[in-house]
Design a protein around this nucleic acid. Structure first.
Length: 552
RNA sequence: GGAUCCGUAGCUCAGCUUGGAUAGAGCGACUGCCUUCUAUGAAGAUCCGGGGAGAGCAGUAGGUCGAGGGUUCGAAUCCCUUCGGAUCCGCCA
């Protein structure tokens, strides 16, 4: 169904003959529900903005959706026909339920996210990648994208080789890996001769030594299984794990070299390595080159990465998305430049900044990290304590997880990706203010009201005359536009912020508009309002990967 | 040294991509409401005064939008300079 927003845009475009006009929400409600600023139009037509606005306000006639149109200086202000819009919005949400604002599956997307080095238990900084990626996946799926999720496993690096060395022929558990990893890093740093052993392992691997390969595979498997279990507990899953080692002897790398050779940008350096000249791509480097092979012709990581990107580009039909830390920015530009050279579409990249600790940066190598698994445990325990204290719901591990993980996820997702986050446990554990549990709580309150209410008959929306009711329903009507924007920009925090605001609108509404204490058609109408609100809250939370408990 | 991102209330952040009406939230502070618990005062009370609590609501205080310049009828938003923080700048992956 056409939203009020689209309806106004259509009328404006018909009236002015212009396209791609923008409308906005006025700063205060008494100015209207939507507004059209006429500055741009005035510039094009060389008229005074106020004149245009006045003219338009007379040309656009009220209809079943628009109650009145007026001009205020350079703005055309639209007041909606509240009853109609409220009735339509509520009807649509109640009919479509969790498929509200969804679209038919007609498009396809590939999203690569997380892709943590398989060396240890993930820390909260890495979690940011997974959470952002997962939310984008969920939003895309809702918006009609058949979406496949990929995880790239860097299983043949020096870091893994060190871990293999440290593990020896033993079979360390996932929990032991972190300690081993820290120890071996220190060890190698202090004893340079150990480094030789590391490189020896790597060259054995590349020489296709089956026994060494097995040792690598075993450690990597322990690691990936452990990481997948933790992320799986958070509800984050992957369709495909792509192993870098599979690209090692892949003939594709040879083909890529051949293709690049034809561009004339590839040269062999004094050490007999294949190097790509990247001048002319405005890369902020002292020497814009990308080294692709060793002198023995074996591939270096960038070449394998290009091969991987080509693979993904072939799979991704409409959108090809990757989530990367800000440290990968320049490197990804290099990869993109190489891709464009051989006519491959580059992926859409979301870069996020790091999570810092009060004490400084996190480094798995040095061991100064907050492990995701530890934090998950802590928020769960914290939530359990709250539940027991409040005694409003039956305490259960499941509920404590819903609330605790909700707090954790929301705390990270509400911040725009390019912002540095200084992580502070106390804030992450808080359930007050702009937090996941606040939103979950609004949802749970609605559930218990609906449970107490007997009748669910058709209500009469013309009885909804309170401004808070209108503000709440208008907010519900903004949901489709919000997730479109969040998915288009690949910025889940837009949805997170929306849900908080929606919860606020609900609380304000409930403060002024009793539901159970009124009777008859008004009661039914209000029950429908909160029922629709519940649907949107639960749906929105689910798109962020957050559960919406019915009691808490 | 070069490049990119960030800098908005005491603290944490939206708003910036697409310039536009009085720059918005949350936390913390103060005030009130609501809900709830409670010792106690008088025989007692659904009332009054006291105390506590809160995933509830509101009001108040809190701003040179890091600084300086420019473009524009109009700048938190665009451009330049500058300061502070983060990140990166061939033989790691």
């Amino acid at each position: 169904m056409e939203s009020a927003r689209d309806h106004i845009l259509k009328l404006l475009e018909e009236t002015t003959g212009e396209k791609d006009l923008q409308i906005e929400v006025p700063p205060t409600a008494y100015l209207g529900d939507f507004a059209f600023p006429s500055f741009q139009l005035a510039k094009d037509k060389k008229k005074r903005p106020a004149d245009i606005a006045e003219e338009l306000s007379k040309l656009i006639l009220p209809d079943e959706v628009i109650e009145s149109v007026s001009s205020n200086g350079p703005y055309v202000n639209f007041f909606l026909q509240r009853t109609t819009v409220m009735r339509r919005t509520i009807k649509e949400i109640l009919e479509k339920k969790e498929s509200f604002a969804s679209k038919k599956k007609t498009r396809h997307a590939l999203v690569e996210h997380t892709s943590i080095n398989p060396n240890a238990s993930p820390h909260v900084g890495r979690a940011r990648n997974a959470l952002i990626g997962d939310a984008i996946v969920r939003m895309l799926r809702h918006l009609g994208f058949e979406t496949e999720v990929h995880y790239f496993v860097n299983d043949i690096g020096k870091q893994i080789a060190m871990l293999v060395l440290a593990a020896g022929h033993k079979n360390p558990s996932f929990d032991e890996l972190l300690e081993l990893y820290i120890k071996i890093n220190k060890d190698v740093e202090e004893n340079p001769e150990k480094e030789k052993l590391v490189f020896e392992l790597l060259s054995q691997l590349e020489a296709d030594d089956k026994e060494v390969l097995q040792r690598f595979r075993k450690v990597v498997k322990t690691c990936i299984d452990g990481q997948a279990r933790i992320l799986g507990d958070l509800g984050i899953t992957y369709d495909t794990y792509d192993y870098e080692s599979d690209l090692l002897f892949d003939g594709n790398t040879k083909e890529i070299i051949a293709k690049l050779e034809k561009t004339g940008k590839l040269f062999t350096d004094e050490e007999n390595r294949q190097v790509l000249n990247q001048e002319g791509y405005q890369l902020a480097m002292k020497a814009p080159v990308l080294v692709l092979t060793r002198n023995d012709g074996t591939s270096l990581y960038p070449l394998r990465d290009i091969a991987y990107n080509i693979k993904k580009a072939a799979l991704a039909k409409d959108r090809n998305i990757i989530i990367l830390g800000e440290d990968q920015k320049l490197y990804q530009q290099q990869i993109n430049a190489a891709l464009s050279l051989i006519g491959i579409n580059e992926p859409e990249v979301v870069h996020y900044s790091f999570v810092l600790l009060k004490e400084g940066k996190m480094s798995t190598r040095k061991g100064n990290v907050v492990l995701l698994a530890d934090l998950m445990k802590e928020v769960e325990e914290n939530a359990m304590k709250e539940i027991v204290e409040k005694q409003k719901a039956k305490p259960s591990k499941q509920l404590a997880r819903m609330i605790g993980y909700g707090a954790l996820k929301y705390g990270i997702l509400k911040i725009s990706p390019e912002k540095n986050v200084t992580f502070d446990t106390e804030t992450a554990l808080s359930f007050e203010g702009e937090t996941g549990p606040y939103i979950q709580y609004a949802h749970a309150r609605i559930c218990s009201i609906l449970e107490k209410a007997a009748s669910q008959d058709e209500g009469d929306c013309s009885l909804l005359t309170n401004d808070k009711e209108w503000a709440l329903i208008k907010m519900l009507g903004n949901f489709p536009h919000t997730i479109e924007e969040a998915a288009r920009q690949m910025r889940p925090h837009i949805l997170a912020n929306y849900l908080f605001e929606l919860s606020q609108r609900f609380s304000e509404f409930y403060q002024e508009c009793p539901v159970l204490q009124v009777e008859g058609p008004l009661k039914n109408a209000r029950l429908q309002v909160i029922s629709a609100t519940k649907t949107v809250l639960a749906l929105g939370l689910s798109l962020l990967g957050i559960d919406a408990p019915e009691r808490m």
